[in-house]
Nucleic acid binder design. Structure first.
Lengths: 185, 185
DNA sequence: GGCACGGGTAGACACTGTCTACGCGACCAT
DNA sequence: ATGGTCGCGTAGACAGTGTCTACCCGTGCC
C-alpha cells in the first residue's frame, strides 16, 4: 500500500483515539481498542503513556486545541463577538459530543499529565476579556464572565445529554442572543 | 447480633450503593463492590436488576428524590424563591457530588429503566413555574426558564469539577443573586 | 563482528459485568 | 409426615479491561 504514513507511534495512537472517540463514543474508547485500530499490541502505548488516562489526556488535548481555535476565531463588535463565541462553543459540543464529554470528565483526566487544567485557563481568560470589553466599567467583570461562561457551558451539556428535549423545539440562536444580552446589562 | 434490619435485598443493595457512592465516588461504584458491602454474592442483584446500570438508575432515583424535595422546599417571594432554589441546587451538588455526577451521567442511566428522564421533568417544570411567576407577561417564559436553569446547572457542574478554581475565591451567594436577577429583567 | 538498547510483543494477573447451572430452605397439598 | 414446587441467593465460568513483567529483535555504535 505504498508509503504508509508511519509517524511515531505516539501520534498514531492519539489520532486513532480521536477517530475512535468520534465514531464509537467515549464508552468504547478502550486502551486495547485503540491499539487494535493502530495495529500494535496492547502493551505498546505504555512506552509513551504510563496509563490509559494519560493517553486519554493526550487525546483531550487535541480537542482543547480545536475548541480554543474555534473560540479565538469568533468575530464581531463586543456583543456580537460574544454571541458568536457562544454559538461556536455550542457548535463544538454538537459536532464533537464525544470530545466535549471527554474534555469535562475530570475523573479521567485529573492527574493524567498534560495539565489540561492550566491549558484551558487562557480559554476562559479570552472569554473574560470579551466580557470586560463588552461591558466596561463594571465592578465585578470576573463574576460576569463566570456567569456567562457557566450559562453557555450548562446549555451545551444539557443539550449534549439531551437532558432538555425542550431544547429541540426552541431555536438556539435567539436563545443565545437573549442569554448573552441578559448578562451584559 | 439481634434482629438485623433485614429489608428485602433490593433495598439493601440500593442503600449500600448510595453509601458507597458518597464514600468512594462514582468510579468505585462497582456492582461487585456493592454486593461485597451488602454481604451477598456478586450474582445476587441480578434477581432485581437486569444489569449494573439498572441498579445505578435505582440509586440515582433516590438522589433525584432528594434533589426534588430540596427544590420544593424553596421559599420566598418570586425572586427570592428562585435564588433560594438555585442555592439549594448548588448545595446539593456540593454536599453530594458523587450523586450529582451520577444524576447526569446519561451514558450510564439511559435505557437502564426507572425512566429518570421523565421523572426529572416535573422538577424543571417547577423551576419554570417559579420563573413564570417571577416574571409574568413575558413572551417566552420557557426560554427564560431554560436560560436560568442551564446557568445554575453549568455553575454547579463547573464548581463540582473544580473546573473554575476561580469560584473558590468568589462568594457564591451574591453571584447567584446577580445571575437570577440578570435573567429576570 | 559483537553488543547495548530503544521500542514493540506476549503472557500473566486482578478485576469487572454478564450468563448459567446449581442448591437450599420455606411453604403447600396430599 | 412426605413429597414437590418455587422464590432467592450461590458459585463458577467467560470475555473483556488496565497494568505489570519478562522477553525479543532489529538498528546503530564502538
Amino acid at each position: 500500500m505504498s508509503t504508509v504514513t508511519s509517524s511515531p507511534l505516539r501520534d498514531r495512537l492519539v489520532q486513532a483515539g480521536v477517530e475512535l472517540l468520534e465514531e464509537e463514543g467515549l464508552g468504547n474508547l478502550t486502551l486495547r481498542a485503540i491499539t487494535r485500530r493502530t495495529g500494535v499490541s496492547h502493551g505498546a502505548p505504555r512506552r509513551y503513556f504510563p496509563t490509559h488516562n494519560a493517553l486519554l489526556a493526550a487525546i483531550a488535548a487535541t480537542g482543547l486545541e480545536d475548541l480554543s481555535a474555534r473560540l479565538q476565531a469568533a468575530e464581531g463588535i463586543p456583543e456580537e463577538g460574544l454571541i458568536d463565541a457562544a454559538l461556536r462553543y455550542l457548535g463544538f459540543a454538537a459536532e464533537r459530543p464525544g470530545m466535549f464529554e471527554l474534555l469535562f470528565r475530570h475523573d479521567l483526566l485529573e492527574g493524567a499529565g498534560g495539565n489540561l487544567r492550566s491549558r484551558s485557563l487562557p480559554l476562559f481568560q479570552h472569554f473574560a476579556d470579551l466580557v470586560a470589553q463588552a461591558r466596561p466599567s463594571t465592578p465585578d467583570p470576573r463574576d460576569r464572565a463566570i456567569a456567562l461562561w457557566t450559562n453557555i457551558h450548562g446549555l451545551a451539556t444539557l443539550r449534549a445529554t439531551r437532558a432538555l428535549d425542550l431544547l429541540g423545539t426552541t431555536n438556539l440562536t435567539p436563545l443565545v442572543q437573549q442569554i448573552v444580552r441578559s448578562h451584559l446589562r
